[in-house]
Every structure is written in C-alpha cells, then in structure tokens.
Computed example of a mutant assay.
Amino acid sequence: MKKLISILLFTGSLFICTQTLLSQNQIANSIAKTEVIKGDSVVSSTDDVIKSIGEKLDAPDVSNIISFSKIFWALVFILIGYFIVRFLTRTIEIWSEKSPDRRVKGKAIVPVVKIICWMIISYIIVKGIFNPPLGSLIAFGASVGVAVGFAAQDILKNIFGGFVIIIDRPFKIGDKIEVGSTYGEVLDMSLRSTRVQTADDSIVTLPNGELMNQSISNSNSGETNCQVVAEIYLPITIDTHQVRKIAIEVAKISNYVYLAKPIAVIFVNDIKYDKLCYKMRLKAYVMDIRFEFAFKSELTENVIKELLDCEILSSENSI
C-alpha cells in the first residue's frame, strides 16, 4: 500500500509541475504585452525579446495535454498496474518456494519483472493517454527532473543504486550476503532499497545508495548451498588427528550436510582467557542456505558431545 501511495503522490507532483508551467506561460504572455513608454516614443523591447525567444523555441501549449479525464484514466491504469505487478510477483514467489532450486532462480527475476511491468505501464500512460508532443515532453521532463533532483537527491541516489545492482548483480533475491554488521538472506530488492532477513528473523532495510559504497560478501552466489564454519576452542594438548576424524564424521552424518562439496577441519593457534589453545574450524556445506544456522549449531553441539564421550575432552582440560 505504501508503494501505491508513493505512486499517487508522484503523479500528483507531475500534475502540479504542469500547472506551474501553464502559469509561467500566462505570465510570460502578459509581460510580452507590456509596453515601456519613454516620452513620446513607445519602446517594446521586452515584447520583441520574448517574441523572438518564443519563435526560436516554438514552445508548445500544454493546456490541451492535461485534463481531468486523462488524469483519471492515468490513475486507473496505475491502480491496475499495481495489482498486476503484485499478482505476478506473488505468483513467482509461491512457485519459487516449492523447492530450493526454484527459490533462488525464481526470485532472482522478480526485480526485472517489476521494472519491465512499470516501464510498459508508463509507456501506455504517456503515449496512449496523454500523447504529448515531443517538445512538451522534453520541457515537462526537464522541469520535473530539476524539481525532483533538488528535492529528493537521496531518493534518486538510491534509485540509481538499484539500477546498478540489478545490472551488475552482486547478489540476487535468495542469496546470503554480509554488508557491514548485517548478515542474512535477501528477501526483496526494489529500486530504492534491499531487505535482508537476519539470523534472529529481523528485517533490515538497506538503502541501495549505501550498498554501492560498501563491500558485499555473498555466501552462496545464486546456489542453494553455502559453506558453514563452526569454531570450537580446544586445549593445546589435545590430539588433533583424532579430533579431526571425529569432526569429519559428525559433519558427514548430519541431515543438513551437502556432501557434493568437501569437508575440512583446520587448526590455528589462538589465545583464550590468557591461555594458548587451538581454535578448530570445521568447514562443511549445508544443502539449503535456510538451514545454515541450524547446521552450525548441530556441528558445534555434536562435536563437543563426541569429544566428551570419547574422553578426549573433559571438564578439567576444557577452555
């Protein structure tokens, strides 16, 4: 509903700008009729200047372009277009949710569908309903562009960023991205902003203008699987070979694991609580990115449980 209100407000602003142009036209015509009298001679320099400019520009009369009926039908088509776009995007989302492969590939085309639909609707309204002469269209577009450019620089920046993101495609709907301190799944992409769902189910809205100036980390790049890293701190005296074997076996028997890609265990030295220790990093791939955090939790819990059951790790030598 917010998008619909924004569209109606934008249409209203266009109508106001057109009325402003008509008022300026009438003022210019009244100035042209004014005569400057000096003594006995009549000086019509203002009239001559304005007349010469008018002849060169051949400015068209826009009073015949805008009317109540045309504005009414334009609003009708905007409403129809809004519901058509909403129906198409909702249909694609429902079809995409039937499988992980469909979800990633299907939702990626939602922004493109939105842009194409609104471009078609805009063409129908401009060409089919108003059908302005080229001169009027250029003058009107320039006036609106200047007015909107000064009043909504940040919005235009975000819209330009949205076009760049759709063309460059650093991420798509369904991807897991990290931007600054925000990490989550991309739920929706519009020309103004991108919505990301984090691990705690919070929805974060990121302006596209800011995304253009930040580094973006993409975990899956359009695939349904992504790498998951579980980190566990272990004492420096532990048997790394045995721990590696247990960790790999735990990852292999998980219901979330994607076995088509390798499982790796890496040990690095670290200092925890002023003690030298190992930081074990268990790397495995999850079959569906939506199970990423459940998979990470399962790996951490089961590895520690197996180490305790095998008496490799105890409460005395734990970190």
Rank of each mutant, 00 (worst) to 15 (best):
P207L: 14
S202T: 06
E210H: 06
S193V: 15
D200Y: 08
V196K: 01
I203K: 01
L191W: 09
P207Q: 15
D200E: 10
G209D: 01
V204C: 01
S193T: 13
S202L: 09
V196Q: 00
L187R: 07
D201C: 08
T194L: 10
V204M: 00
R195P: 00
V204I: 11
S190Q: 09
S215L: 08
M189V: 14
T198F: 06
M189H: 04
G209I: 09
P207A: 13
I216N: 05
D201L: 07
M212I: 15
L211I: 04
L206Y: 03
R192W: 14
Q214H: 14
S193A: 15
M212E: 13
T205L: 07
P207S: 15
M189I: 15
L206P: 03
M189Q: 10
V196D: 00
R192S: 15
V204Q: 00
R195K: 09
S190K: 05
M189S: 08
I203M: 03
N208E: 06
R192Q: 14
L187S: 05
L206V: 00
S215P: 02
I203S: 01
A199L: 09
D188V: 13
T205R: 09
R195T: 08
L211W: 04
T198W: 04
M189L: 09
M212N: 04
S202P: 03
R195F: 08
R195S: 06
V204L: 02
M212D: 09
I203R: 01
D201Q: 08
I216S: 07
L206S: 00
Q214P: 08
S202G: 07
D200F: 10
A199C: 02
N208A: 14
S215H: 08
M212C: 13
I216T: 05
I216Y: 05
I203F: 00
S202M: 04
Q214M: 13
T194E: 01
R192C: 14
E210F: 07
S190A: 12
Q214L: 15
D200M: 06
I203A: 02
L211Y: 03
M212F: 11
Q214R: 15
T198D: 01
I203P: 00
V196Y: 05
N208S: 12
L187E: 08
N213Y: 14
S190Y: 11
Q197T: 01
L211A: 01
E210K: 02
D200S: 10
R195L: 03
T205E: 12
G209C: 11
M212W: 13
G209W: 09
R192E: 14
L191R: 04
S215W: 07
M189W: 05
A199W: 09
I203G: 00
D188K: 12
T198H: 01
E210C: 04
S193L: 14
T205W: 06
N208D: 03
D201R: 10
L211N: 02
M189R: 04
D201W: 06
S215E: 13
N208G: 12
